[in-house]
């Protein structure tokens, strides 16, 4: 095969590609892109701003439980408002109703088998189920142990129980307690530091607490100010939608 015949063959193929497209169904054919023509990419849309007035997943009881848990994980103090005041429960409620909560990106084929710690979480539970099961079991445990719901306990008692959940030293029921704890901690951190467009981090309180400037895209003007405190006002994606 010399180059000339390759080029010649290539030209023939271009001529025949129109006829060949007859055999291709429309959907896939649209996704065939040819050099010399315009290529169209599907658009990646910005996130839809969360409406805090709309409840998506949590029941009123679950909402109260999560509020109590989150506000001990990120309490109100001199550094910031609490997690729920920052919108972290709203954030979670919307996340659990979406693809993340429903585990749509997880590999869920069986067989389900217990593995070694190196093999990672093998359960087929999604995050929404962790909350639904875990919060019900937490309520059962609290009623049995304290005769009261978690959200009605004092802050010290709540903290002591959260520490037990974290270490896995308390038996809730089917769900290992540290799984519920880890899930809550990961999500409250997400809510506190995610862009406000997702419902948490309202007023960019999380970003302001640590000095992260948010969705900025150019720091060249600050390169020379190494080691200095920079008072950069953070920005959210909301301003761009």
């Amino acid at each position: 095969m010399d180059r000339r015949s390759v080029i010649k063959a290539g030209m023939v193929l271009i001529a025949t590609s129109v006829a060949a497209s007859i055999y291709r169904p429309a959907g896939a054919a649209l996704r065939v892109l040819s050099g010399g023509n315009r290529w169209h990419a599907k658009e990646t849309l910005p996130p839809t701003p969360v409406d805090p007035a709309v409840r998506m997943f949590l029941s009123d009881k679950e909402y109260a439980q999560v509020t109590a848990i989150f506000d001990r994980l990120i309490p109100a103090d001199a550094l910031s408002v609490s997690a729920s005041q920052a919108g972290c429960v709203v954030f979670l409620d919307h996340q659990l109703a979406g693809p993340y909560g429903q585990g749509s990106n997880r590999y869920l084929k069986g067989p389900e088998q217990a593995g070694t710690p190196s093999q990672g979480d093998q359960s087929l539970r999604n995050p929404a189920q962790v909350y639904r099961i875990g919060l019900a079991e937490l309520e059962g445990h609290c009623q049995q142990a304290f005769g009261s719901s978690f959200e009605a306990l004092g802050a010290e008692q709540q903290d002591a129980l959260l520490a037990q959940l974290e270490s896995g030293s308390v038996q809730l029921g089917r769900l290992p307690s540290e799984v519920l704890f880890k899930q809550c901690l990961a999500n409250v951190h997400e809510g506190f530091f995610a862009d406000p467009v997702y419902g948490g981090n309202q007023g960019m309180v999380g970003w302001k607490m640590i000095g992260f400037p948010g969705a900025r895209y150019d720091y060249r003007d600050f390169l020379a100010q190494k080691g200095h405190k920079l008072e950069i006002i953070p920005v959210s994606l909301i301003g761009r939608i």
Partner: peptide
């Protein structure tokens, strides 16, 4: 899919740690 900077990851979309 085919993706291109200005439609799929412009600054108004890309600077999103959660996503």
């Amino acid at each position: 899919p085919y993706e291109v900077t200005h439609r799929n990851f412009p600054p108004s979309v890309a600077a999103d740690e959660l996503r």
